[in-house]
């Protein structure tokens, strides 16, 4: 198991380094912190101080080297806009994004698998068409539009849910649904295909022939065998989900890491952007690892490979 973990994790520093370098260079090359942070009426002393602090008079590679040296020590630097440690700013928000992503993922898995199973069992009947239709619709709708529609309907028309912000349980429903809407169709289609394929397997036919109730056949014999593609897909989609959270967080004023990143990119607040990207990279890698471990526990074939 440790060998397996090591094989999976050994390239993490390399990918992080690449991500750091690209982010740093792109942000530094496309915007000068002096023009962005300092007031228009800045004094030469202020310019000088910031130049010294960020080593703006040195070549880009040197700047990156100095920055990297601090990052390795766990010091991502101070947020240029706000003089607060960048990592602190990011960690403050991380929990909110995780909360949103986990709830969205939960919604997507539950609704997706349920929808997919129903569609498969009612194959080529009305329910199947309806679910497939909704799936295609959900996938084609841009999330900012869907989000605003949901606000209009549930918050303004019905008055059931708050429009935005963070608070009780009610606050997370709409953003999580918006974020999940993109994934649900995929889960539906994968589950549907999986269930239909597995239903044709001989052991299922045998189970049915033995007179086992249909519900038990589905839950005990069919579903476990369709979990594998669903889990793999889940791992693949995590990155997308975190990417999608950027838009969802902006629409619903959700104080997460995605929104922080957008505003920091506009402000060329490199320490915050890099800290956020690092944390996200690590989160995605770890989550994928978790999925793989789960897969290998579920499926002995993977463990042995």
């Amino acid at each position: 198991m440790f060998g397996y973990l090591w094989r999976r994790l050994r390239y993490l520093p390399v990918s992080l380094l690449l991500v750091l370098f690209i982010t740093f260079s792109v942000l530094r090359l496309t915007g000068n912190p002096i023009d962005i942070y300092l007031d228009m009426n800045r004094t030469p002393e202020q310019v000088e101080a910031l130049t010294q602090k960020l080593h703006l008079d040195r070549p880009l590679v040197v700047q990156f080297g100095i920055y990297l040296r601090d990052v390795v020590k766990g010091d991502f630097g101070e947020s240029l806009q706000f003089g607060v440690p960048a990592l602190e700013v990011v960690l403050d928000r991380l929990g909110n994004t995780i909360e949103l992503v986990v709830v969205a993922l939960g919604l997507a898995v539950v609704l997706g698998i349920a929808g997919g199973a129903i569609a498969a069992l009612r194959r080529d009947k009305t329910a199947d068409f309806l679910i497939s239709f909704l799936a295609v619709l959900g996938q084609s709708m841009p999330s900012f539009w869907l989000g605003i529609l949901l606000i209009q309907f549930f918050a303004l028309r019905l008055g059931w849910l708050p429009t935005s912000g963070q608070g009780g349980l009610a606050h997370i429903v709409l953003p999580a649904l918006t974020l999940a809407a993109y994934l649900i169709p995929n889960f539906i289609l994968i589950t549907r295909t999986g269930v239909i394929e597995t239903s044709n397997e001989q052991f299922v036919v045998t189970a049915t022939a033995k007179g086992i109730p249909a519900a038990r056949v589905l839950l005990v014999h069919i579903m476990p065998n369709t979990l594998n593609p669903i889990l793999s897909f889940l791992g693949l989609q995590l990155g997308k989900l975190i990417g999608g959270s950027i838009i969802t967080e902006s629409i619903f004023a959700w104080p997460g890491i995605g929104r922080l990143m957008v505003s920091s990119i506009f402000q060329r607040d490199i320490p915050v952007v890099i800290a956020a990207i690092c944390i996200m990279c690590i989160a995605i890698v770890l989550a994928n690892l978790l999925v793989d471990v789960a897969l290998s526990l579920l499926d002995p074939r993977i463990r042995e490979a």
Partner: peptide, 8 residues
Amino acid sequence: RSIPEAAT
């Protein structure tokens, strides 16, 4: 409250 998106 911070509500960056105008429509929201």
